Amino acid sequence: MRELKILAVVVILTLITYWGVEPFAHSQMHPHVSPANFKFEEADKVSAKEKVEKAQKALEEAKKLNNEKTIKGATLTLDEAAKYDTTVNEFWASNQDALKATGNVANGETLVTSNCTACHSIESKGFPQLMDNASAGAAYGVTPPDLGSAGKLYSKEYLIAFIKNPALASKVSHKFVDGRAHPMPSYDWMQPQEIADMVAYLESIAPKEMTNKQVFNDACQRCHGIKYADMKKGSMAAFTSNGDIKAYMGKLPPDLSQYIRSRGANYLETFINDPQKQLEGTAMPRVGLTQESQAQVIKYLEEVGDSKKAQREELGPKFLIYLAIFAIFAFLWKASRWRDVH
């Protein structure tokens, strides 16, 4: 009986740690954030409103402390949050006509090939890169993407927003202040119908299917590399050189080889969808992937950094059953050996 009591104590303490202490510690290191939202207009309005509410609470707390410097800082933060909230709502309101318009593919082709191919390639349509990756990265800060898959990777909503104002659409407008300009110019001077036409063309030339690796290459590899990959997968360097991307981002973007293990799929789902949720003020842009494309990126990171996950999960229940059977036999053997002693 003594052994059973000891076992019961160990089990109870383990469960308390697993379901109580560990989740609490995790919540402190990684505060809960709202789930990924692929309706970007809705998501932006909600996050902008939450920022205002947070700033209002901070100001109220500052007034309770009655510290002039703290109150001044909180007031400035609230003013900035309110201004951003207004900007976001006006921005998405200005996109409505383009969102409702039916795009003309032929006119979109003319607009894209005359406005975009000066910087972007469309290899599938005979528009190669004008510069190699190193030269393009040095010129723009980051290598411009090939547009052949844009209509597959991104929704109409996001493409319209990004063409109109890249900094606002990707939620990095805080980076481009004091005269700094986003490497891609805003096309807010275009008519809504023209932007809709461009998006219609990009959707028409996009591939119907893409592998997980192809999605990762087009969506992530301009900035991120995979150095410590499964030997069968092979390593991949970022398209933009370390020096150029560090100067553009402010710091070197992390290697993603083991991110699926160090961060986990749940973290990546919210971070890729909106980096500002997890790291407010980060230079990492909102990529704007559709739910399907984002799932493919995460799946590829699992293939590269956690290729044995399925085998490990399959082995887990079998191992627990083995431990249970072994414990029963061990207890019975101990009882038979120690019966006479007791």
Rank of each mutant, 00 (worst) to 15 (best):
A8P: 03
C220K: 06
N104Y: 05
L59K: 00
V304D: 01
F216Q: 05
L159R: 02
A138P: 05
R222M: 13
A283L: 05
E314H: 13
W338K: 15
S34T: 13
G288L: 04
G234F: 01
H32T: 14
L268V: 02
Q258V: 09
L4H: 10
S135C: 06
V112N: 01
R180P: 06
N212M: 08
A169C: 04
P207G: 03
V46K: 08
P145S: 09
V21Y: 11
S94P: 01
L78Q: 01
A62G: 03
A237K: 12
K208M: 07
N67P: 05
F271Y: 15
K309H: 11
L147G: 01
V142N: 07
A134E: 14
E194V: 03
A58K: 02
V10K: 05
V105R: 01
A98V: 00
K308H: 07
K175H: 08
C223L: 01
Y84D: 12
S336D: 10
K57R: 13
W338G: 10
L320M: 15
T110F: 05
S114E: 01
S114D: 03
E41Q: 11
D218A: 10
L279E: 14
N133K: 11
I226N: 00
E157L: 06
V215L: 03
T14H: 02
I328H: 08
L4G: 06
F127L: 08
Y18D: 10
A229I: 12
W92D: 08
N266Q: 14
L168C: 07
A324C: 11
L15S: 10
R312L: 13
G73K: 15
S27T: 08
M190E: 09
T282L: 04
I245S: 02
I260S: 00
P31V: 05
I160R: 03
K164A: 12
S204L: 04
D274M: 11
T270C: 05
A295V: 03
N165V: 06
R286I: 12
V11S: 07
P253T: 14
L13Q: 00
F91P: 07
N95Y: 01
K63Q: 12
R180N: 08
A25H: 09
Q96L: 06
E313W: 09
E61S: 07
A118D: 14
E80R: 05
V33T: 07
G264V: 05
F176G: 01
N67M: 11
M231V: 15
S293E: 07
L76Y: 10
S293C: 05
G288D: 08
N95M: 10
N212G: 04
V297E: 04
N104W: 03
I328F: 13
M210A: 04
Y248I: 03
A283W: 06
Y228W: 15
G103S: 06
V177E: 09
M131Y: 12
N266A: 14
H120L: 05
D79H: 10
A150M: 04
T211N: 01
G141P: 01
V341H: 12
R180V: 03
K83S: 14
N66P: 06
G126I: 04
I160Q: 02
G103F: 08
M231K: 15
L323Q: 15
Q294N: 09
G137W: 02
V11Y: 04
A48P: 07
S241P: 07
V52W: 02
K69F: 00
R337W: 08
F239D: 08
P253E: 11
